[in-house]
């Protein structure tokens, strides 16, 4: 067991270019995602009255927030932004997979070269594999969405929506 771990770490250290690239990739995503969320959340926190204010102000804040989210299209631009971010990452994913697996296999080549060579040589194959993977993973989604909207109608007002959806989310 320890040998496998050791071997794994050793082969990881033999990929300095891939490690640095992935680190920078994660760092940039983390930074921009954090800044994006902060640009939404912090102004809202400046509007949140807190429980020390009179007249049920926080209660009204939450109720109005719920009405705005559920009765208007306020959420749509944010959902689009997140969807575009996800699509970009999904496009990059099979390319990164191709680069990493190729690099692990062809340690005889230059670290940076083999990374890009992997993308060039195996990118298309990994893309096809990824599309199939996603298609199979998402196959039950139409059924789940139907179920969720049915439960949404039934449980939204009683506040038991999450509890009702949990078994399906877990599945």
């Amino acid at each position: 067991m320890m040998n496998w771990i050791r071997e794994g770490l050793r082969s990881a250290f033999r990929q300095p270019f891939a490690i640095v690239t992935l680190f920078v990739y994660e760092l940039l995503w983390g930074f921009f995602l954090y800044r994006y969320i902060q640009s939404i959340v912090t102004p809202l926190l400046h509007r949140y009255p807190g429980s020390s204010l009179p007249g049920g102000a926080s209660h009204l804040f939450l109720a109005e927030g719920q009405f705005r989210l559920t009765k208007t299209d306020l959420l749509i631009p944010y959902m689009w932004t997140l969807a575009v971010l996800l699509i970009v990452r999904m496009t990059v994913t099979p390319l990164l997979n191709a680069a990493v697996y190729y690099s692990l296999h062809r340690t005889d080549l230059n670290a940076g070269y083999r990374f890009f060579r992997g993308i060039k040589q195996l990118g298309g194959h990994y893309l096809l594999y990824y599309v199939l993977l996603i298609a199979f993973t998402a196959a039950p989604l139409p059924w789940l969405i139907g179920k969720a909207s049915e439960l949404y109608g039934k449980h939204f007002l009683t506040g038991k929506l999450i509890a009702a959806l949990l078994p399906y989310a877990g599945g």
Partner: peptide
Amino acid sequence: RHINNFLTMKVDPKWNVRWNLGIVHLIE
């Protein structure tokens, strides 16, 4: 629109970070 009736200068930094990180992690 009662939400924009109110503006505070002070936001609890602890909660600010919790909310931001929490949501970022959820999305991640």
